[in-house]
Amino acid sequence: MHRLPTLAILIVTLLISSCSSIELFKERTEIRPYKEYTSFVIVNKEVESSSFSDKLIDAKVTNELEIKMKELGLTYNQESPDLVIRYTSNEDPRQRETYNNQFPMWGMRVWDPWMYDPRFMGRQNMVSTKDYELIQLIVDFIDPKQDKMLMTITAVSEASNPKAKSKNLVKSAKKVIKAYEAHMEAN
């Protein structure tokens, strides 16, 4: 009896986590963190620079980065921050081919009493294209005292509509800050 709820929770967790895959890459580290950083600034916010084509998405990413950094105990300091955060994006529209099965569920429809589905009559190769966007959120963490890169983290995801794009970018910002936190704890 106890296995069924545990199995159901595991399956739901796997389905939810597989729906929107976000991959992280820690790309460049010029220096090791030499001290505990206590304050930060987001350059994009200060110079009102937009990295995304949609201003609302840009504001959401900036807000999420700021909230997560404050949750780590850092304060926002415009005058003399210990850490400078700058982010850019790469939005790449793409297409993928999808192949529709002419014989759904029954293989070659051997056991289907109707034998032929009129929706698929005369169509041998049913290929369609699906539009999606490959999105990269590239976040630089810079030590202004040494004028060197602490690290660069890139989050890569795909989205097929604006709502999914916004949701994936907010999740990407959260994952980037978690990776920053893990890097700081490891050193």
Score class of each variant (00 low, 15 high):
Asp54Val: 01
Ser17Phe: 12
Ser51His: 02
Lys55Phe: 06
Val43Ser: 09
Ser51Tyr: 01
Glu30Pro: 01
Ile42Ser: 00
Asn44Leu: 03
Leu24Phe: 00
Phe40His: 01
Asp54His: 05
Phe25Arg: 14
Ser39Ala: 10
Leu7Val: 15
Ser53Asn: 10
Pro33Lys: 09
Leu7Tyr: 09
Leu15Met: 12
Phe52Pro: 00
Ser18His: 09
Asn44Ile: 05
Ala8Ile: 15
Ser50Phe: 11
Ile57Gln: 01
Glu30Trp: 09
Ser50Tyr: 08
Ser17His: 09
Glu46Gly: 06
Val47Ile: 12
Glu46Asn: 07
Ile9Lys: 11
Leu15Ser: 10
Lys26Arg: 15
Phe25Asn: 14
Leu14Ala: 15
Arg32Trp: 07
Asn44His: 02
Ser17Gly: 13
Thr29His: 04
Val43Gln: 07
Lys45Phe: 04
Ser21Tyr: 13
Ser53Glu: 06
Arg28Ile: 12
Tyr34His: 13
Lys45Leu: 10
Arg28Glu: 09
Leu56Phe: 11
Lys55Asp: 02
Tyr34Thr: 11
Ser18Arg: 10
Ile22Asn: 01
Ser49Ile: 05
Val41Ile: 14
Arg32Glu: 13
Leu7Met: 14
Lys55Asn: 03
Ala8Asn: 11
Ser50Ile: 12
Thr38Met: 12
Ser20Ile: 00
Val12Asp: 09
Lys35Ala: 13
Val43Asn: 04
Leu56Arg: 07
Glu30Phe: 08
Leu56Tyr: 07
Ile11Phe: 04
Phe40Lys: 01
Ser21Asn: 14
Asp54Arg: 06
Tyr34Ala: 11
Thr29Ile: 14
Ser53Leu: 03
Ile11His: 09
Val43Thr: 13
Arg28Gln: 13
Val12Thr: 14
Leu14Gly: 11
Val41Ser: 04
Thr38Glu: 15
Val12Ala: 15
Ser49Asn: 03
Lys45Gly: 08
Ile11Tyr: 07
Thr13Arg: 08
Ile57Lys: 01
Phe40Val: 02
Phe52Trp: 03
Leu24Tyr: 00
Ser51Met: 04
Ser21Lys: 13
Ile57Phe: 02
Thr38Arg: 11
Val47Arg: 03
Glu36His: 04
Ser17Asn: 14
Pro33Thr: 12
Arg32His: 10
Asn44Ser: 05
Val41His: 01
Glu27His: 08
Glu30His: 09
Arg28Ala: 09
Cys19His: 11
Lys35Trp: 08
Phe40Met: 05
Ile22Tyr: 00
Leu24Pro: 00
Ile11Thr: 14
Ile31Ala: 10
Lys45Pro: 00
Glu46Lys: 06
Leu56Thr: 06
Ser50Val: 12
Asn44Gly: 06
Lys55Ala: 06
Ser18Tyr: 04
Ile42Tyr: 00
Leu24Met: 07
Ser21Cys: 06
Leu56Cys: 02
Thr38Lys: 12
Ile16His: 06
Phe40Trp: 03
Leu7Asn: 14
Asn44Met: 04
Asn44Gln: 05
Ile31His: 09
Ile31Pro: 02
Ile42Phe: 03
Ser53Gln: 06
Lys45Arg: 10
Glu36Arg: 04
Ile22Cys: 01
Lys26Val: 15
Leu24Cys: 08
Leu7Ala: 15
Glu23Ser: 14
Leu56Ile: 08
